[in-house]
Write a protein that binds this DNA or RNA. Structure first.
Lengths: 111, 111
DNA sequence: GGGTAGGTTCGATGGATGTCAAAGTGTTTC
DNA sequence: GAAACACTTTGACATCCATCGAACCTACCC
């Protein structure tokens, strides 16, 4: 049996809240990992690429979900997370791709 | 005589910092106003649409500039601010448009 | 039932951030 | 030079936020 954790409706997704959710290195890493997978992903698996404690990971997943970026479903004792592509594309076309698409340009040369 | 205030080079613009700069209602309002003007704009004029004290406005302009979003030049006793379209498009294609383009969809219906 | 595994909640803590009043800096004008 | 102007800087304050340890909660397994 699976149940879905509470999340904002498409229309109540707020841009400032959304940007705030993405303006954190850990959350951006999580989002990139999910985005690369392209579909539903195991929470624990995604969180493998990040080095913070379980409570902190849980906190970040909650922030992403409450900002309207992700959907989380509980399946047994594991969580499955999905990026809300359709809702986000409808509200802010192109935004997700612009932020999460791996750029060809590397961060910075030196200094 | 005009001089330019210090700002990060194109290559050292950081995505997390940039998103953090945009994740504030006052700064987003300022950016939208500049974006709508399309070119160099008078700082005071742009700030007219926002209801905070002069020190706070000054603080927000600084955050935007240090994040790499804007260029500020001093001309006499007034400041002129410009969005760094070229640099931002080079580093994060489509991002600015996705965030600042006025959407057809209104915020939310009610609740 | 007992044990384990995956996650969450609670509480505390240190650091970042938005805000303004007061004082300071450089510029134009009279 | 004095006054007015347009900001900025400094200092203080309240709030938010990321983080972790400890305790808790279900779900699965024997």
């Amino acid at each position: 049996m699976t149940r879905q954790l509470p999340q904002p409706s498409r229309d109540s997704i707020n841009l400032v809240t959304l940007l705030g959710a993405l303006a954190d290195p850990v959350r951006l890493t999580l989002m990139r990992a999910m985005y690369a997978r392209g579909g539903p992903a195991d929470c624990a698996e995604v969180a493998g690429g990040v080095e913070v404690s379980p409570p902190t990971v849980s906190h970040h997943y909650r922030v992403l979900r409450e900002a309207g970026l992700t959907t989380t479903t509980v399946e047994g004792r594991r969580r499955v997370v999905t990026i809300r592509h359709d809702d986000l594309e409808a509200r802010f076309p192109g935004l997700l791709a612009a932020i999460l698409t791996p750029s060809l340009v590397e961060p910075a040369p030196s200094g």
